[in-house]
């Protein structure tokens, strides 16, 4: 019921109680020992009808609102704490997942680096071996060339020496060009035989 209606009704009852207070019917003789006074009863109904909305508005509603607000605040704090806990749990899971992923990536990178280093080593070794082979081949060719040149020089000297010796042994009637050719053919024959 409306609070103001109750207040109005209470005031009306109080007035009625005071109006009828001296009338004989308000004090039934049957209950004289119990001091029943219906005027007081009616007035007290009025007092209590005033009391209920006043206590409700002045005491109950603020108390209820404060307690509800506190309960609401506690509930929201608990909810917030729960949300933070869930969030932390999620972050922890994310962190652990990222850690695992990072570890895997690092491991993979290290493996790749090792593999790359091994390939590079292999490549360098291969290149070094090729270069060494090339150097050896080049040195051998050079040696061969030097050898051939030396042999040619020696052969020339030998021909010259032989001609000189033969000139001294055989005499002057021999054509030096013709002798030179014969000796060279001889030496060729000797070389082929050796």
């Amino acid at each position: 019921m409306n609070k103001f209606a109750l207040l109005g009704l209470g005031a009306i009852f109080i007035i009625i109680g005071f109006v009828v207070k001296d009338q004989s019917w308000t004090r039934p003789e049957m209950f004289a020992g119990l001091q029943l006074d219906l005027g007081k009863t009616i007035t007290n109904i009025g007092v209590f009808l005033l009391f209920i909305p006043v206590i409700n508005m002045y005491f109950y509603v603020p108390l209820k609102e404060a307690m509800d607000a506190r309960n609401h605040e506690l509930e929201s704090t608990f909810t917030e704490a729960e949300q933070l806990r869930v969030q932390m749990q999620t972050l922890k899971s994310d962190y652990e997942a990222r850690l695992i992923k990072t570890e895997a990536e690092a491991r993979e990178t290290i493996q790749n680096q090792i593999k790359e280093a091994q390939n590079l080593r292999q490549q360098l070794m291969s290149e070094a071996a090729d270069r060494a082979d090339a150097l050896i081949r080049s040195a051998q060719a050079e040696i061969e060339q030097e050898k051939n040149q030396t042999i040619a020089t020696i052969r020339t000297h030998v021909v010259d020496l032989t001609l000189a010796a033969a000139q001294k042994v055989i005499g002057e009637n021999m054509d030096s060009e013709k002798n030179r050719r014969l000796i060279a053919e001889f030496i060729e024959t000797v070389e082929v035989a050796s």
Partner: peptide
Amino acid sequence: TPTADWSLNIGMAVITVVYVQY
């Protein structure tokens, strides 16, 4: 004390019973 007066107690009882019926 008001509660030691039957007349006043009946007033409260009337309100209680009427409230229950309401």
